[in-house]
Design a protein around this nucleic acid. Structure first.
Lengths: 252, 252
DNA sequence: CGGAGTTTTGAGGCTATTCAAAGGTCGTGG
DNA sequence: CCACGACCTTTGAATAGCCTCAAAACTCCG
């Protein structure tokens, strides 16, 4: 790693995932959030947590596994707009809609805790600091989407793949799930294609080429980034530094 | 229009743009927001309101004109991630960052009112209903990005253009700025290309083809959508219904 | 009236797609 | 425990959509 990353989420609120990632919450606030979380549900791979065009009565906090958020066009093609990892809040974009925009599909066996939409709303109205944290989390997701859009819109296949792999790596590394650049990679080549807007066939050819160049190595459902810095340079995106610390809000 | 649109923003808070679009604010809350707005600034076309990689000390409420939010990759290519119209809040994604992610450029002569980042933060912490509204606005922007990503990732050039034009039309129509499907179109073909991930040359050929098919007509900096429904069908995106009304928060 | 930026048009080339099929892996059921 | 089917990965060949390069016509502005 060539840059200092934000400090890891404080372990006491680890069960809350990224719900309070931008604010150090009081114990009352943490309790309010914890009270929203319904019992853990387990689902197998390929399970559809929530279809699109459904009524968004619940959100989900992902506690284990990977989930894809995808949009299907009338042409039949689907775009994966986000790969969610443990700690992520699922289904938030549809909060402003009467009908869900995305489809949430388990890419691995997963564990989630449901959150009632209406109860979350009233919690936000009651606890301003929770609202602030969720507001900033939403902006962070916006930044991620903007970067993905820029890469998909402007870059060739190898750059798109480099950007995706380094992004996954960074997010997993933060949680200690990518030691030595190696991590479990449950996305199929078709999934990768749906994520970066490329045909599975071409994903395959590009991956093999990157393999040949000793940028990555693959085996089973595991991938190793052999040269993270070079991959980052290929991706061509700057490292982002997120606000953190107790006093940043007041800072002018 | 084949669908009922959400009611127009209530005129009393029109000066607040979309700052309170999802919540009917009290007069105290409206005053708090209005107090954030610094005096109106006017800028010419091509003016850069805020560079990327800058320190995000201010946001902007756009009161007149069009502004592009763009990301530049190291390859030199740039992606316009959002075209902002009057009423939009500019620069919000960078709130979670120490360094701005996007560059804000005036596509027309514009008028903006600056908002101090730190003052906005404390206002959010003080007024939960303002926080809720801004949170939902952020989710709405996320939905817009998700749709744009899906179109850019999966659709051919004519579909991307159809989606972009109908989106601009809907947003302008809401404000009464697109009577009869006709509206002022300040984006150059290069801009359109940067927005949908296509070369200006190919934008030109595709526009001419759509012109030939009597889908659109162009003259000066004005465009007419001759068959909005057909364009919508080409775009292949469902009509979105946003939450609204006084009681939707409590609804289960 | 000159100059810069925009639109338009042409020709050729490249990236990525489509179609097709073989080999591999994994889970399931006989 | 093996056989089978489903899905994934890999490979090839032909094609299509889009890009690059280039240049002319047009518009707008100073």
């Amino acid at each position: 790693m060539d840059e200092d990353l934000p400090p890891p989420i404080d372990s006491p609120s680890d069960a809350l995932g990224r719900l309070g990632e931008f604010v150090t919450l009081s114990s009352r606030e943490r309790a309010a959030l914890a009270g929203l979380l319904e019992p853990v549900q387990h689902w197998p791979r390929h399970h559809v947590l929530r279809h699109e065009a459904a009524v968004p009565s619940h959100l989900y906090l992902l506690t284990k596994g990977w989930v894809a958020s995808s949009i299907v066009l009338t042409s039949g093609k689907q775009q994966i707009v986000k790969v969610h990892l443990p700690g992520d809040l699922l289904g938030a974009p549809s909060l402003c809609l009467t009908t869900t925009v995305d489809c949430l599909t388990a890419m691995t066996p997963i564990a989630v805790r449901a959150i009632s939409r209406s109860r979350l709303m009233t919690t936000i109205e009651t606890y301003p600091r929770i609202a602030l944290s969720l507001f900033l989390s939403a902006q962070k997701e916006r930044v991620a989407l903007m970067e993905n859009l820029a890469v998909v819109g402007q870059a060739p296949a190898n750059v798109r793949i480099a950007a995706t792999l380094t992004n996954l790596f960074d997010r997993l590394f933060e949680r200690g799930d990518a030691p030595g650049g190696m991590f479990h990679m449950p996305l199929t080549q078709r999934d990768l294609g749906d994520l970066i807007g490329i045909t599975p066939v071409h994903v395959n050819r590009t991956l093999r080429e990157m393999d040949r160049l000793n940028l990555i190595k693959r085996s089973d459902q595991t991938i190793s980034l052999l040269d993270v810095d070079r991959l980052r340079r290929i991706a061509g995106l700057p490292v982002r530094h997120y606000v953190s610390g107790p006093d940043w809000i007041a800072s002018d």
